[in-house]
Amino acid sequence: MNLIRYKKAEKAQMAVMTEDLAIYDLSFSDFQEIDARASAREMSIHSFIKEQIQDQLPINKKISDLELLIPIETEEVWAAGVTYQKSRMARNYESSHQELNNETCYDKVYHAERPEIFLKSTRKRTLGPNQQLYLRNDSNWQVPEPELGLVINHQAKIVGYIIGNDLSCRDIEGENPLYLPQAKVWKGSCSIGPSIRLVETVENPYDLTITCRIYRKNELVFNQSSSTSQLKRKFDELVSYLVKNNELFDGVVLLSGTAIVPPDDFTLQDDDHIEIEIPEIGTLTNAVKMMVEQAAHC
């Protein structure tokens, strides 16, 4: 069961898509209201929605007919780093000149008790399916980072899964790990979508296939898959560190890391199209455009 959000009569409409691809409109415009209503009745979101649509007919449209919106307008998107061996190796390559006694900071965080967790995006910076992302104009080595995202409610409970695209500047971070915020956070550097897969309907979240495809002038230039089975840390562990001494907004998203890294000689270019697919959730598609320098507002 997947929750989607689409434009209907110029307004946001929440809906649910069942396993047979039937779509049922819900009497809500955002995910947080659904979660709040389900919590008030001490029900899971899955049970609550099943009750909502039990006497309802599906709409006469397919998902391809709808103008999908970002499925959750989250106040914050957080991200975990170096949670896969592939990510550890890539981050070490970026910062090979920073090695100390043959062990980098990325080796240390990969093995450490405390995971790396950082703020990736805010509500106004986070985009949805089919929206245009941006490339930094002061970086020469930029890549997507396809990730499984965890949708977390105010009770620190994982209630759903979503796809995330964590655009990253490998050269900026490789120059100095303290540049991580600039390598990760800028206008249009994060997208999530296209749906939220409810946690109760996923048999094993550590057995999901993630595929990333990049098209340049309609030609496929990158195609790689990985599995969440390669993840070093458990989702509950990541969430437990996110909430420590922290204020948790309802419907926050935590990206769980990536095991897909394009070749070291690859960088995104103007008008590239990125597709990130997790079959249980759908395909998140975004084009990228180089940022045009703007005057600062004081």
Rank of each mutant, 00 (worst) to 15 (best):
residue 152 I to S: 06
residue 202 V to Y: 01
residue 139 S to V: 11
residue 239 V to Y: 06
residue 230 Q to M: 14
residue 152 I to L: 11
residue 239 V to M: 08
residue 203 E to D: 11
residue 173 E to Y: 00
residue 204 N to A: 05
residue 217 K to D: 12
residue 161 Y to L: 13
residue 170 R to I: 07
residue 214 I to C: 04
residue 220 L to K: 11
residue 181 P to C: 13
residue 150 L to Q: 07
residue 174 G to H: 05
residue 152 I to A: 07
residue 215 Y to L: 05
residue 141 W to F: 11
residue 252 V to K: 04
residue 193 G to V: 13
residue 217 K to H: 11
residue 219 E to L: 09
residue 199 V to W: 01
residue 185 V to H: 06
residue 257 G to I: 04
residue 161 Y to F: 14
residue 137 N to S: 15
residue 167 L to F: 08
residue 207 D to F: 02
residue 172 I to Y: 01
residue 245 N to P: 06
residue 222 F to E: 05
residue 179 Y to F: 14
residue 235 F to W: 06
residue 151 V to N: 06
residue 173 E to W: 00
residue 235 F to N: 09
residue 159 V to I: 15
residue 186 W to M: 11
residue 209 T to I: 12
residue 145 E to K: 02
residue 162 I to Y: 04
residue 188 G to Q: 05
residue 137 N to T: 10
residue 245 N to H: 07
residue 251 G to Y: 15
residue 146 P to G: 05
residue 144 P to C: 12
residue 135 L to V: 09
residue 211 T to W: 00
residue 241 Y to L: 04
residue 137 N to Q: 12
residue 133 L to I: 08
residue 231 L to S: 08
residue 255 L to N: 06
residue 128 G to V: 10
residue 142 Q to L: 07
residue 253 V to E: 03
residue 244 K to Y: 14
residue 253 V to A: 03
residue 156 A to L: 03
residue 238 L to V: 09
residue 168 S to K: 03
residue 261 V to F: 10
residue 140 N to H: 15
residue 177 P to Y: 00
residue 260 I to V: 07
residue 265 D to F: 15
residue 171 D to V: 07
residue 174 G to D: 11
residue 261 V to E: 12
residue 259 A to K: 01
residue 168 S to R: 01
residue 175 E to R: 14
residue 191 S to R: 03
residue 239 V to H: 06
residue 178 L to C: 10
residue 156 A to G: 09
residue 241 Y to H: 07
residue 149 G to C: 03
residue 199 V to C: 07
residue 212 C to D: 08
residue 197 R to N: 09
residue 181 P to L: 13
residue 199 V to G: 03
residue 213 R to V: 01
residue 192 I to Q: 03
residue 192 I to M: 02
residue 176 N to L: 10
residue 134 Y to W: 13
residue 146 P to C: 01
residue 249 F to K: 15
residue 131 Q to A: 08
residue 168 S to A: 09
residue 172 I to A: 01
residue 145 E to Q: 07
residue 131 Q to H: 13
residue 183 A to Y: 05
residue 250 D to F: 09
residue 152 I to W: 04
residue 208 L to F: 02
residue 131 Q to E: 14
residue 200 E to Q: 13
residue 257 G to F: 09
residue 184 K to V: 03
residue 222 F to Y: 11
residue 242 L to G: 04
residue 201 T to N: 12
residue 178 L to F: 14
residue 257 G to Y: 09
residue 142 Q to H: 14
residue 191 S to A: 15
residue 154 H to A: 14
residue 210 I to W: 02
residue 220 L to T: 03
residue 137 N to E: 12
residue 179 Y to L: 02
residue 150 L to I: 11
residue 133 L to D: 07
residue 154 H to C: 14
residue 205 P to F: 01
residue 193 G to N: 12
residue 190 C to L: 10
residue 230 Q to V: 08
residue 194 P to A: 11
residue 263 P to T: 05
residue 194 P to Q: 08
residue 205 P to R: 02
residue 187 K to Y: 13
residue 253 V to S: 01
residue 248 L to Q: 02
residue 250 D to V: 04
residue 137 N to D: 14
